[in-house]
Design a protein around this nucleic acid. Structure first.
Lengths: 199, 199
DNA sequence: TACATTTGCTTAACAGTGTTAAATTATTTA
DNA sequence: TAAATAATTTAACACTGTTAAGCAAATGTA
């Protein structure tokens, strides 16, 4: 009677199907177009069964947000271990962050969109904190002061984040500008901040 | 028979009332909560009459966006004329931009929100272009090369914008951090960019 | 003044949204 | 096979934006 586990596996399957379907719809027609009935259509069920897998629509969005942070963290990690020096690691990680934003545009919009309640998400998800930490750790290594001022570290992280996020936002909004130019701006800006990380 | 004009004035009045009501609702409960029926309630009418003043809901949002750009431009102008040197003007203008974002938080969200179709708005509104121009003009004055490379100018403007917008986004999301600290970060970052505007 | 016309506004309706409760069907258990 | 349980759907509610039809009051015309 291992059918219990088989059923459990099937349920886990449709749970993932729901998330996949949701992301697919968003990729096709944007976040605004996402609806419970459309998801149900895609997985060939009716809307109410989704509520057996998620508390509500926000539950789905939250899970996708979590998924986004997990992917982002992996990409940051992969970028980091390819370099030795902290300054190189830092640059590589922010470039990876940049790449993530465009490779998983929809997830990035969900994670950092103005309309979303990122504030609560940050606290709720260890995954979100992990991405912050892996970067802050590297900045810390780069800072010469001992002990490192946590407040200053935080400010440095914000400076990085704002520059990169700002550039990404600009790119989402103004699709006209070619990606190469902006990547150039980004790299220049990063080098500048890294250079003056101790001031 | 000046009643024609009186009626015209009344119509213009309710048009403005609709915009005011919309903004008020958003201030109270956020953009997500804004609905045609709520607007109608506030101006003591029923929903369909709104369509006599605006094509649809997006028409209202577009008009509010326009309003936002008009205000922003005025604030930038006011900041600019209080200084002589271009570098001081530039810093003052970006600080004014920062202040605008928080003073008119809802309008800023509408103007630069990720979900909005800013791309078309930028082209459609002369008001949006005016704000870009007043800043670009000042950057131009600061650039020593003659003739100024338009592409480089554009990149410089983007650098500024991304830093400021990024910091503002962070502040909207992480309300915990105190405003003073971030304003300090902003001023530092601005001075840095201004210093290295010719490289 | 009496009738016709236009205007202002509302009610009703449609298609869509998220969500819940009841009804139904299928599956498993005894 | 009958009872119990699980899986799934249908129906409904309260919303959303938006449109068409209807009504009532103001206006123009004779």
């Amino acid at each position: 009677m291992g059918s219990k586990e088989r059923i459990q596996r099937l349920k886990e399957d449709t749970r993932l199907n729901i998330l996949d379907a949701a992301l697919e719809i968003v990729k096709e027609d944007g976040w605004q177009s996402l609806s419970m009935r459309k998801i149900a259509d895609k997985i060939e069920y009716t809307a109410p069964i989704i509520y057996e897998y998620f508390a509500n629509k926000e539950g789905i969005l939250l899970e996708l947000t979590r998924k986004g942070y997990i992917i982002l963290f992996q990409e940051l990690k992969a970028a980091k271990i390819q370099h030795e020096l902290p300054q190189d690691q830092l640059e590589a990680m922010w470039m990876a962050y940049w790449d993530f934003a465009f490779k998983y545009k929809e997830l990035y919009q969900l994670m950092y969109g103005v309309d979303m309640s990122c504030c609560e998400v940050m606290k709720a998800f260890p995954e979100a904190e992990a991405t912050t930490n892996i970067i802050c750790d590297t900045i810390k290594e780069l800072m010469t002061a001992d002990p490192v001022d946590d407040d200053l570290l935080c400010r440095k992280y914000f400076t990085f984040w704002s520059v990169v996020h700002g550039l990404i936002s600009i790119n989402f909004v103004r699709k006209g500008t070619d990606n190469m130019t902006n990547q150039h701006i980004l790299r220049d800006a990063l080098k500048g901040i890294i250079k003056y990380v101790n001031d």
